[in-house]
Design a protein around this nucleic acid. Sequence first.
DNA 1: CACTCGTGGGA
DNA 2: TTCCCAAGAGT
Length: 357
Amino acid sequence: MSTPDPKLLLAWYDSHARTLPWRVPPQPAGRRVLPDPYRVWLSEIMLQQTTVAAVKGYFDDFTRRWPSLADLAAADLDDVLRAWAGLGYYSRARNLKACANAVVADHGGAFPDNETELRKLPGIGAYTAAAIAAIAFDRPAVVVDGNVERVVSRLFRLTEPLPGSRPLIREKATLVTPNHRPGDFAQAMMDLGATICTPRKPVCGLCPWEKSCLVAHDADVAQFPRKAPKTARPTRHGTVFVVFQADGSVLLRKRPEKGLLGGMAEVPGTEWTAQSADHAEKFAPFICTKWTKLNRPVEHTFTHFHLVLSVWTGVADHANQTIDKHWWSSREAVAGEALPTVMRKVLKAAEPHRPGL
DNA sequence: CACTCGTGGGA
DNA sequence: TTCCCAAGAGT
């Protein structure tokens, strides 16, 4: 069995590359056209643990609104958070803004072209530094993401489960990464992982590396890469209060800057705890005389826990009361708030109780 | 090193 | 329905 030949993968990529908004298509032999580093960086941040389908719309919105790095550096963080709402992993949005500021302040507004300097920027880890160096600057960086882990684990039939196998995966990835067209090679690995060497039902018959793959003809290709067993997801409980005014506006507040959903908007509520302690009456702000508890709680599953929220709704007794660190969001404004998906679920559940329908 | 940190879609 | 997962980073 021969070592996987980069030329075979690059030839496959030349005819099968996905067309993506942040990408420059593979060029004819001898030509090299590099993409805008700003767009490469933005796409890489958005794509961290996030599907291409989910990213596309956000990428279009961001690049339309902030066409250049300088535009993003000049933006308000809260505007960036509002634009990011729904995409998840919100620390990415904060680091995105911090990174834009740092590149302007410390690098004259141009991204550094090497992994070492890229790695020092907020939100850019080992993978993203290598990806930007390779894709935006065509540097021969070893790019190891989830796709590469899967492809390499299969090519070399690595039986040790993740994450323990990572050092060996990197070693093998280094072995196959060429000095020629490293940017296209990195993107080719991702396209291969996304369209051929997929997690569940890989299409080995269409793979340019089938002949050099040690598991292509196994019955259990999809069992690679092997992974350590996952721990069970606990359930947390909380109570939230959807307070309306007669004009249909709703009371919101801002979550703490750090931690889960950091800096995002929410309706007021209790802490989320393991016990379903319903201290609702004690917590409820004294701005509504009458409260209604929804029959059905709102449920939402995060990466590491499941959340069950009891939802109480009420209409404020007096118009435009000022409440410290809260604000009233009008019907028109709610859509543009930095509300994470779980809070949009809460508002949707309370919608039948909103005045002035 | 192990844990935190979102979401929507597909099987 | 339930589970898994998708171009990881920060601590």
